[in-house]
Design a protein around this nucleic acid. Sequence first.
DNA 1: TCTTTTTATATTGTATACAAAAATCATGGA
DNA 2: TCCATGATTTTTGTATACAATATAAAAAGA
Lengths: 223, 223
Amino acid sequence: MTDHLKTAARICSIIEQRIASGAYEDGDKLSEMALAEQLKVSRTPLREAFQMLDSIGLVTLIPRRGAFVKRPTMTRLVEMFEVMAELEAWCVRLATKRITAAQRLYLRQAAQDCDAALQAGAPDRYYEANNRLHGMIYEASGNQVLAEETQRMHRRLRPFRRQQLDVSGRLAKSMKEHADILDAMNAGDADRAADLMRLHINTLSSTYDSYLTTLGEHVRDNA
Amino acid sequence: MTDHLKTAARICSIIEQRIASGAYEDGDKLSEMALAEQLKVSRTPLREAFQMLDSIGLVTLIPRRGAFVKRPTMTRLVEMFEVMAELEAWCVRLATKRITAAQRLYLRQAAQDCDAALQAGAPDRYYEANNRLHGMIYEASGNQVLAEETQRMHRRLRPFRRQQLDVSGRLAKSMKEHADILDAMNAGDADRAADLMRLHINTLSSTYDSYLTTLGEHVRDNA
DNA sequence: TCTTTTTATATTGTATACAAAAATCATGGA
DNA sequence: TCCATGATTTTTGTATACAATATAAAAAGA
């Protein structure tokens, strides 16, 4: 293998997308032999991928029985966003108080890169800069464990994210929200920064609404 | 294998304990062949265990190079407790508003079982009932994802927990704190319940101080 | 003697082989 | 016809084999 970037992770991403896109339905059995042949890998790295998927809650591994698709319901997706919003809000609250001068510079740079990518209409660059901006806030929280957990939750939401161009000026709105959050941070207003972040994540979550249609599910009036 | 309870998890626990106890030092290379022979398993389940340990941050997996022990520093352990405290506080805040009648009953039962085990001087039963109590609060939050993440963090802290009998009336103090938290929940005072939970976790964290000595590390005046 | 290049050894990543358990199918009885 | 029991086939869990890379050791050159 010249992949260098391990096969299991690649397989994991593929199956992830299939689950998110609805190619697999909830409860579907993932046959090792069939998938191994289809994806041109042996069972060993495939089983590794299954474990990854299990750890992010997209499949259920039942001993001696196999891997079964666990497609998140809309309710569960909302719950993931609730957790995400709260984690990020906490990060930004801590970061407001603890951020270093260097981190502040990197953060400003990431925000500028977001802006530039938006102007240039380059969604890939926007995506990268946006991740860098959020990741920098996690780090600036000064709590490495919190940063890792938040990053993990971010990663878990990724497959359900619409990777589309800017529809209805959503990205522009995000930019404005970023600016407001950074302003609150610079002003040292941790509570406001946290509240703004919560709103920001909720705004993002609305872009996942399309998931609902592919799900054919009624939203429970919970959460 | 008649284990039924998968070997990888068992291996994972063993290595976990070795790391926590200081049998392995930070940075130690975990040789697959050597460990496989020592633990009487093949490389396959051993590598599974390595991945588990990687996912809970106790080893670093470097491609084509191997698994290396990543022993948490005291700072990191404190960070884990910070996250734990915040997650549990959030759980109890939500639970105060959302708990069902049935869950309230189970919660009360778990608290009584804690008490009974304490009176009987049965640490194993206390341990089980205590886990049940906390787990019930996670569930009662009504956010399944939050509950899972909190449970996960609880699991991660387990190897660093002193599994000792009641020293200096610590368990009795815990009991009182449980009672106060449940009182606040019953009174519908979410903020107070959350604050009390934070204090409760911080009390628990002090019992991990012994880790410091085995670590031979100076606590940074951070966090 | 020290550095660099080449060769040999050891270790990881992946594929395959084998054993045990589960699922499927078939047969037999009520 | 339906259910139960037993044989057959799949499928999973673990061990091993093989290929590719990294580590070490040795040899050559400065």
